[in-house]
Amino acid sequence: MAERPDFTVLTPYARSLGIELAEWEDDVPVMRVEFVEAVEGRPEHFHGGATGGLLETAGYAALRAELARLDRDAVLKPINITVQYLAAGKSQASFAKGRVTKLGRRSANLTVEAWQDDRSRPIATAVMNVFMAEAEG
């Protein structure tokens, strides 16, 4: 099996929110963000954009992990992301995990779920479509 991707180095946006790798679950990364001022919207609640950023980061992390498992390298470019907000994120850590639902030669489809203390009650979900360009080099 190929080496796992290094998720200690994330995008500047993900770093600005404080998103980090929480754990590996079934060879898929679970991402976490603590409730801090950078993610607060209305008092004591996550901002929707921060929740969307967590979902997007977890989706890309799941795709990168699957590509690494297959020993594939690609430049990822978003086609679209649709977020469904299901419940307000409260002032506690949030987690997200993505799943690759279809992996083609040039595109991938993903689903992502975000939750807080109860995984069976997600606060948001997302569907992502990603274009995969050949990596140069």
Score class of each variant (00 low, 15 high):
64 R>E: 11
92 Q>R: 14
73 D>I: 10
60 Y>P: 01
99 R>W: 00
86 L>R: 15
102 K>M: 03
87 A>L: 15
53 G>R: 06
99 R>F: 00
93 A>P: 09
38 A>P: 00
67 L>H: 09
117 D>Y: 08
53 G>W: 00
125 T>F: 01
110 L>Y: 00
46 F>T: 08
59 G>R: 08
87 A>Y: 05
53 G>D: 03
89 G>T: 05
97 K>C: 09
89 G>M: 07
43 P>M: 06
62 A>G: 11
104 G>P: 02
77 K>A: 13
65 A>D: 02
105 R>W: 11
62 A>F: 00
42 R>P: 15
88 A>E: 10
123 I>D: 03
125 T>M: 10
91 S>N: 14
117 D>H: 13
107 S>C: 04
54 L>P: 04
50 A>R: 09
100 V>R: 06
100 V>Q: 07
122 P>M: 06
57 T>E: 03
63 L>F: 00
56 E>F: 05
126 A>D: 07
51 T>M: 12
115 W>D: 01
103 L>W: 12
65 A>M: 07
122 P>W: 14
82 T>A: 13
79 I>P: 00
56 E>P: 01
101 T>N: 04
97 K>T: 09
119 R>Q: 14
47 H>P: 03
39 V>T: 09
50 A>E: 09
81 I>Y: 08
37 E>M: 05
56 E>I: 04
87 A>R: 15
81 I>N: 10
60 Y>F: 07
54 L>T: 12
69 R>D: 12
61 A>H: 01
97 K>G: 02
64 R>T: 07
96 A>K: 02
79 I>C: 06
83 V>Q: 08
72 R>G: 10
84 Q>I: 01
80 N>W: 12
69 R>Q: 14
105 R>C: 01
37 E>I: 06
109 N>G: 14
121 R>I: 04
83 V>H: 05
71 D>H: 13
93 A>V: 12
98 G>T: 01
119 R>P: 01
101 T>M: 08
91 S>W: 08
68 A>L: 09
78 P>K: 10
107 S>F: 02
101 T>W: 01
63 L>S: 06
56 E>V: 09
91 S>M: 02
86 L>K: 13
108 A>G: 06
54 L>N: 02
69 R>S: 15
105 R>V: 03
64 R>K: 14
82 T>E: 13
88 A>K: 14
118 D>L: 09
37 E>Y: 05
120 S>Q: 11
84 Q>A: 14
96 A>P: 04
123 I>Y: 02
63 L>G: 03
